[in-house]
């Protein structure tokens, strides 16, 4: 695996915003994992877009760009590594909870500190990039090579309280051959005509939950699923949930939406939607209640931690 140089690190505006929000709402310093993709981009000089887009088209050689698509925040520091900075892959697995996204690197958010990497951050990046890799996606050359999970994103706040300037962020690539960080520019990608160029190579992959809702009508499929009992159970459960939502309105009935019957049937459909809405509202209040309980538990944990640290309030 070569130690290739990244051209830049791209992040969507909402992802960056939510990362900043997560960092600023946490009581103290936090760290977490970054997911995303790495692309090889062969930029051409042909552009039918506005001339303002010249940045992307000026260079002719191929570039490697990392795209930061999502993150998981651990809510504390020293979460998936030990105090020496050695990454523990089991703790990474428990933190990412089966997220199918590829691990691009990690981030550290610390309050009122200098905006350069610390001793431990360097050690963590070194350990992480020696253990985790992800493929470089290349549309021209599908036989892809791997690249280390070498991205490090650092969020800090200035040491003196300021009203306007409240956050700073920097991104780095850890180079394993030199064993050091190299700063990389951060490109913020938003939706809009000015950003059209950025999407040329990007294959959108949403993190939709893997719902196995295949209809268990044929005996063949039952045979196929025999291997994993828990998978089958999950599929049945998912199917039940979906059926419950569309109670009494099987796909077959949809044909009644056209033709003479339709006028009578719309009322029924509306009813179904109302029931669905009521269910969603119920779900919202459940989420709210459970968040409140999570918050209470969090507060209690902090209290216990402070008691251990002998901090009186």
């Amino acid at each position: 695996m070569d130690d290739l140089s990244l051209e830049r690190i791209e992040i969507s505006g909402p992802t960056l915003a939510s990362l900043i929000q997560r960092a600023s709402s946490s009581p103290s310093d936090v760290d977490g994992l970054i997911f995303g993709q790495i692309h090889r981009i062969i930029s051409s000089n042909l552009s039918d877009d506005s001339p303002a887009d010249s940045l992307a088209s000026s260079s002719s050689s191929d570039q490697i760009v990392a795209t930061f698509t999502s993150f998981i925040c651990s809510g504390k520091t020293v979460s998936f590594f030990d105090p020496l900075g050695r990454v523990d892959s089991r703790r990474i697995d428990s933190l990412r909870v089966g997220s199918p996204d590829r691990l691009l690197g990690w981030f550290s958010a610390r309050r009122k500190t200098a905006n350069r990497p610390s001793m431990r951050e360097l050690a963590v990046s070194s350990s992480l990039s020696s253990q985790f890799h992800l493929p470089i996606e290349d549309s021209q050359n599908p036989k892809s090579t791997n690249m280390a999970s070498c991205v490090f994103f650092l969020l800090t706040t200035p040491s003196a309280d300021q009203c306007i300037h409240t956050h700073e962020y920097r991104s780095y690539q850890f180079r394993s051959t030199k064993q050091r960080f190299e700063p990389r520019s951060v490109g913020i990608v938003n939706i809009g005509p000015a950003f059209r160029g950025h999407y040329g190579s990007f294959s959108p992959k949403s993190g939709f939950p893997p719902l196995l809702c295949e209809l268990n009508s044929s005996a063949m499929s039952v045979d196929r699923d025999e291997g994993s009992l828990s998978g089958k159970k999950q599929a049945v459960k998912d199917q039940k949930e979906i059926d419950a939502l569309a109670e009494g309105f099987q796909v077959g009935n949809l044909k009644r939406l056209v033709g003479a019957e339709a006028a009578n049937y719309t009322g029924g459909i509306e009813q179904m939607y109302e029931r669905m809405l009521a269910k969603i509202e119920g779900l919202v209040s459940d989420v709210e209640k459970s968040s409140a309980r999570v918050f209470e538990q969090d507060k209690h944990n902090r209290k216990l931690r402070n008691r251990i640290a002998r901090i009186e309030r």
């Binding site: 310093d29 610390r110 500190t113 902090r302 901090i311």
Partner: peptide, 8 residues
């Protein structure tokens, strides 16, 4: 840099 939330 210590972390006052995690003084351990």
């Amino acid at each position: 840099i210590y972390n006052s939330e995690y003084t351990m």
